[in-house]
Structures are given as C-alpha cells and as structure tokens.
Design a binder for these strands. Structure first.
Lengths: 157, 157
DNA sequence: AACAACATATAAGAGCTCTGATGTTATGCG
DNA sequence: CGCATAACATCAGAGCTCTTATATGTTGTT
C-alpha cells in the first residue's frame, strides 16, 4: 500500500482502529505483543509460550504436564510440545516416577532458572510499556475485560 | 488441580486474574477467543485467520498477497499459507497476471462469498458477547488500549 | 478381585506464524 | 540500454496450538 493502493488503511486507522471489531483488535494486539516478546527473547531462543511455561514451573515446582496445561489454559498435548522443547534445550527436568506411576513432575534445571532470570528482566520492561498510557481506571477496565474474555466458557455461546 | 493440587489457582483467580501480568491476560484472552471463533466456524471448516482473510478480501477485492499481509499485520509468508488453504477450499480465486506481471490478485469465489456470509453471522454474535458487560467508557478504554498495543512499533523498545 | 471410569502422557495430522533464502518482475539511475 | 535495487511470491524449517486417537496407570464400584 505504501505506494500501490491508497484506499487500504493502515493498522490503527478507521475501521482498523478504534472503530474496528474487538475480535480483530484483540487478535492483532496479541499477535503484536507476542512478536515483541519473542524478539526481546530471541537472543535466548525462548518463545512467549516457553517463557510462560518457565514462569509457571518456577512458581509451582514439581507441577505435572496436565496441571500445567490447565494453568495455562492449553491442551495437554500443546503443553507437551512446549515442555518437550524446553527439555531438549536443557531448561527443565522431568522427574518421572513420583510416588504414583504415570505423572511426570516438572522442575527447572539450574540452566532454566538462570535463563528465566534473564528473560524476566526483558519481559518486565515490555509489561511496563503495556500499562504506560493507562490511568488506574482504564487499566482496571482492561484487566477485568481480559479476564472476562479469557474465562468466558465456550459452552455459554 | 480439580483434585491434586489445591495450591494452583484456576484461570481468573488471584495472580491469574485481575492482578496478573497484562501480557498473560492478553495472551489468554486472545487464545480463548480464537478458540471460540474457530468452534463457532468449525462446521464450515474455517479458522479465525481464514475468516479475517475472507473479510479483508471482501472489503478490498483484487488485493494482492503483500497488501493483504500488511493489512492483517502478518508476514507475506503467513498470508500465503492462509490464502493457499482458502484456494484449496475453493473460497477464493487468484488472478495471476494482472496488467503487470508478478502480482497475484485475490478475489472471493461465489462459494467464498456464500461461506463468508454464513460465518459472519456467527462471529457477529460472538463480537456482541465481547462487549456485553462493558460500559461505553470501558469499551472505549479497551479499544484504545488494544489499538495502542497493536500499533506499538517493535522498534521503540 | 475384576471391571468400568477417569487421568495422564504421547503421537499423528492440520493450520497458523515466524525467520531465512531464492527466484522473478519492476523501477530507477548511470 | 544495462545493471542495481526494491517489491512480490514462494519454498524450507521451526515452533505453537488444536483435534483425534492410543496406551498406560489410578480409582472406585460391584
């Protein structure tokens, strides 16, 4: 469009801005932020999903794959992939045989802890940018809305 | 957690709710809504990304792959995959040799138009749910924030 | 003790999305 | 005109995410 098609608006303008569909805006905002996080973490080869998993395992050491999936609002299969990649990278350890047989306990390795620490700093900075222009009222409204959307039961449709 | 680990909060509670990181909340909200849209469109085998592409091609007939990518804030490669799947499904047509050689013009097929119409109704209902509990003030705040996040230049970090 | 119900983990297949690389076509400047 | 640069399309490779399906382990009921 830069040259060819002046009729196409850019992101943030007109129907693609404040007047657009909330669904689009949500999609685009999440995509933009995801990319931003992954670029900030690119140096460490960590994705947004992996960062989230590291944080959660750090908060709940010994968590199971299934519990982690519930925590992250993802399917166990999805989490299995993410955990698998983190294990390949040596950031976490699977402790297979708990007291009971099937469950795999997840814990950060020393490498994983060090990695998480470095990632945290960068992401925290981005988190700050996210709230930059917001008043307390507005931030509250945004938080409540995001939680409502995230927890809206799919069945209630 | 339902049984095993009572210390793990569920989505929407404590640090995972209004007090959590905005980045997480954004990620989860977008994931939840994406899933909701795709379940609503499952009958037609259309994904959220495909729906977005159909809408945009409908709004800007004859758009190029590259312009569509800019419009959707995605890479040309990503759009190429989405468009490829829509073409396989017979929902759109590529008009390769415009006046000038390299560009591929995209247009909805009759099938695509009919499909989009059906999808629209369902997604519009979801869009309504998105704004359900919001006051005018709150909705405005949310919209402005989403646009700000979506358009925040990655370079400004 | 046996069987049914449920949870856990994992694999396969599909779609979305990115980065990086390649080839082709336009455009612009000596 | 010829070549460099830029834009477009596309391939390859990687990771995330879902669905569906399978195998194994735990628990509760009869």
């Amino acid at each position: 469009m830069r040259k060819g098609n002046p009729s196409i608006p850019s992101a943030g303008e007109g129907k693609r801005g404040e007047e657009g569909y909330l669904g689009y805006l949500l999609r685009q905002a999440a995509g933009a932020y995801r990319l931003k996080v992954e670029r900030a973490l690119d140096e460490f080869g960590v994705t947004q999903a992996q960062f989230a998993a590291l944080i959660m395992i750090s908060a709940y050491p010994g968590i199971s794959n299934a519990d982690l999936a519930r925590l992250a609002v993802l399917t166990p299969q999805t989490v299995s992939v993410i955990v698998g990649n983190l294990e390949k990278a040596g950031s976490l350890v699977r402790r297979p045989h708990a007291v009971h047989g099937r469950i795999q306990h997840l814990d950060l390795s020393d490498n994983g802890r060090a990695l998480l620490k470095k990632c945290r700093e960068r992401v925290y900075r981005l988190e700050g940018e996210l709230t930059a222009g917001l008043s307390a009222e507005e931030e509250r409204a945004v938080r409540l809305w995001l939680v409502a959307v995230a927890t809206a039961d799919a069945a209630q449709a």
